[in-house]
Simulated assay, not measured.
Amino acid sequence: MTTKPWILGLTGGIGSGKSAVAQHFVDLGVHLVDADHAARWVVEPGKPALGKIVEHFGPDVLQADGQLDRAALRSKIFTDAEERRWLEALLHPLIGEEIIQYLARAQSPYAILVSPLLIESGQHKLTHRVLVVDAPEQLQIQRTMARDHSSDEQVHAILKAQASREQRLSHANDILLNDRDLHWLQTEVERLHAFYLTLRGGQA
């Protein structure tokens, strides 16, 4: 009989390096689901969620080709907490269902759910163990500005909207401090992977 894979939640603040960590786990053969991808799947044209969003916010949240105009939607909810809550109440359960379906297909001993909002969205409840990729805030800001060419203020605004480091770290079973180079980071991922393969149900 095959045992169902246990689920590792992988998260980290903006610029922490969680994408590099996620990629290396994939290279090691671990089944991975990205919550951001699931969030895109649920609002594709033809999906009921998109219809509800248009009904609620009006047709100007659609692009000419019928796809969701994310920038337009973001600008409507960015400053309005009430509207953001409405959208989250609609999407979070649907995203959760997509994630569960994808995780269920895993062939590896454990599967990973990577999500920048793992803690805030309650998605950590879908997981058995949480790995937080952490980095000093100054380094997060430098990396993000270099990657997205965004301003210092923009990065600070995103950092504020994401769970505080304390909140994230308080949910962590494992913490990977990413303040060195990529080679070191990959070695750490391999060390964690070897450890995770020894776990049953994600608990030591």
Score class of each variant (00 low, 15 high):
83 E>H: 12
23 Q>I: 02
33 V>S: 10
48 P>Y: 03
115 S>A: 15
149 H>C: 14
201 G>A: 05
23 Q>P: 09
22 A>D: 03
130 V>S: 01
68 L>H: 07
91 L>Q: 10
2 T>G: 13
37 H>F: 01
27 D>L: 10
169 L>I: 05
65 D>L: 01
95 I>A: 13
144 T>K: 01
161 A>Y: 04
88 E>P: 10
40 R>P: 11
185 L>E: 03
99 I>N: 09
141 I>S: 03
192 L>A: 07
103 L>K: 09
70 R>G: 13
91 L>I: 04
167 Q>P: 04
32 L>I: 04
34 D>E: 13
148 D>L: 11
129 R>C: 07
32 L>V: 04
128 H>K: 14
47 K>W: 00
79 T>A: 15
172 A>E: 00
185 L>K: 03
83 E>F: 05
109 P>S: 11
144 T>A: 12
86 W>E: 12
163 A>D: 03
162 Q>T: 04
197 L>K: 15
175 I>K: 01
59 P>K: 14
199 L>T: 05
69 D>T: 06
144 T>S: 08
2 T>I: 09
153 E>P: 10
125 K>R: 14
138 Q>S: 10
60 D>F: 12
82 E>I: 03
159 L>Y: 02
133 V>E: 01
97 E>V: 10
91 L>R: 03
61 V>T: 08
64 A>M: 10
52 K>N: 11
21 V>I: 10
157 A>K: 10
181 D>T: 06
189 V>Y: 05
149 H>Q: 13
55 E>I: 10
152 D>L: 14
49 A>P: 11
24 H>V: 01
86 W>K: 11
173 N>E: 06
114 V>R: 00
10 L>E: 06
197 L>Y: 09
105 R>Y: 07
19 S>C: 09
184 W>A: 07
103 L>Y: 05
9 G>S: 03
79 T>L: 12
33 V>N: 11
179 D>V: 05
2 T>R: 14
194 A>G: 12
147 R>M: 09
150 S>Y: 04
203 Q>H: 14
204 A>H: 12
87 L>W: 04
185 L>D: 01
35 A>I: 04
49 A>I: 02
74 R>H: 09
114 V>Y: 00
202 G>C: 06
176 L>K: 02
151 S>Y: 05
169 L>H: 09
94 L>S: 13
77 I>L: 08
132 V>Q: 00
26 V>A: 15
102 Y>N: 15
